Every structure is written in structure tokens, then in C-alpha cells.
Computed example of a mutant assay.
Amino acid sequence: MSSGKWDDLAPRLFSAVAMVVVGALGVWLGGLWFHAMISVIVGLMVWELVKMLDTERSKSALVLAMTAGAVAMISIELPGAFALPLLLAPSMIGLGRMEKGGVTYAVFTALILLAGYGLMALRDDFGLTWMVWLLLVVVVTDIAGYFAGRLIGGPKLWPRVSPKKTWSGTVAGWVGSSIVALLFAGSTQAGIGLVGVSIAVSMASQIGDIAESAIKRRSGVKDSSNLIPGHGGLLDRFDGMLGAALFIVLAGQLIGFPPGTS
């Protein structure tokens, strides 16, 4: 076994265990505790985004991060019609504070806020079961992709932007999400159609991962930050969840949610 391939496995596992414990507790408790956890994550992701795009804006990064976190916490308590403009406010505020990467900041921050809002709404409206389903699809996609990519290798998905991503790992993520779907289809009323939805969620999480990789490549950084040993920053860890949550927000308007029960 080549040790170089697995040098980052130990810190990744330790950090992953810590994140799973904290995340599982927040998801289990739900309500205000879950809202607070998501709001902190949203704020830190925006902080990382600003630091990547405009390294000279440390003060602005802190201000925008606190604004985003506060907006996330407040918006979920408001009717949807009033939450929407509030969710876009940090993007508009940031445009006036960024010397570089303003458009990228505005778009990605809007996506972060909408995804955070979607996760809170999913937990509040549909309960623990469907929150666990979404988390498992994203986590299994990541784990299956990690191990298949290193054990099987093969052609790269998009080497210019994400040189470690392989087609074998990508497809393994789809297979893993299908297995998760079959487990939940048998224990809910979702039916076999959940397999298709889960594969699409897996794809959306992979797109979120690649989108964040593109920003890092453009900014010339390896990780969004060093907050999480073995994983980089929160954007590095939750980019897949960002894409998946956004997909659920959009897909829920087309097919209804939970899948197959409407």
C-alpha cells in the first residue's frame, strides 16, 4: 500500500468523527439548536469565501460573516415572502465592500444562505427522517468517491479544476446514494422513485464540491481555510451539502417533497 495516498486519512477520520457527533446532536435536537448550528456554519462559510476572494478584506470578512449568520438565524423565523429578500441582503451588502471577486461573492453567498435556509426548513417541516436521508446521501457520496477514487483511479472528471476527482469515484457516489435510497424507500412511502432523486442529490453535491474547487483554483489556495484538520475549511467539508440542499429547494417545487408522497 502506498502511504502517500492515505496520509490524510487519520486526521480526516478524527475530524469527521467530531463533526458527526456535533452535527448529529444538532440534527437530533432540531429547532433553535439546529438553527443556531446552521447559522454558525453559514457565517463561517461566508467568512472563508471572502478571505479566499479578497485576502485584504479581513475586517469585511468578519462583518459579512456575522451579517450572514444573523440573517440565517432570523430568516427562518419569518414568513417565506419576507425571508427571501433578507437572505439576499448579505450579497448586496458585500458588493460594496469587496475590491475583488464581488460578483462571485454575491452569487455564492446567496447560494449559501438559501441552502442554509433550505436545511432548516427541511428539518422543521419534514422531521428527522428526511434530514438523515439527505445527510446520508451526501456523506455516502463523499466516502464512496474518496475510496473508489483512490482504489480504482482511472480517468479524471475535470483535472484542470479538481485533479483528484475521478470518474470512478463519481460513479461510486451515485451507487452509494442508490443504496441509501433503497434503504429509505423500504421504510417510508417514497417508493422506488427515491433512487432517482437520491442520485440527482448525489450529483448536485458533487457539483457543489466542484464549484467550490473552481473558486479555490481561481483564488490560488488549496483549502478554503484550516479550521478543520484533514478537511480544510467548512466550505471544503460542506460544499457537497450546499449543492444538495439547493437541489432539494428547487426539486421540491417540481416533484413535491418528500419524494413520491405528494
Rank of each mutant, 00 (worst) to 15 (best):
K164P: 00
T170R: 05
V138T: 11
W158F: 15
P163I: 04
W133G: 02
G186Y: 14
K156C: 10
A185T: 03
K156F: 12
T141P: 10
S168C: 11
G169V: 09
R160T: 15
A148W: 00
I152S: 13
A185K: 04
T170D: 01
T166W: 03
Y117R: 09
G169W: 00
T170W: 07
W158H: 12
L111D: 10
W167P: 04
A144E: 04
Y146F: 14
W130N: 01
A110V: 11
G145T: 05
L136Y: 07
G145E: 02
L151F: 14
P159L: 07
V139C: 13
I112F: 07
L111H: 09
I112C: 11
I143E: 10
L151N: 09
S162W: 05
V175P: 05
P163Y: 13
D142Y: 06
A115L: 10
L119I: 00
G176V: 04
A121G: 10
Y117D: 01
I143M: 15
L136T: 08
V132R: 00
I143N: 12
G173R: 01
V132G: 03
K165M: 11
G173C: 06
D142F: 11
F126K: 07
P159H: 02
F147E: 07
G173S: 12
D142C: 13
G173E: 01
L183H: 14
L122W: 00
G149E: 01
T129K: 04
S177I: 09
L111M: 15
L134R: 00
D142Q: 07
G186V: 06
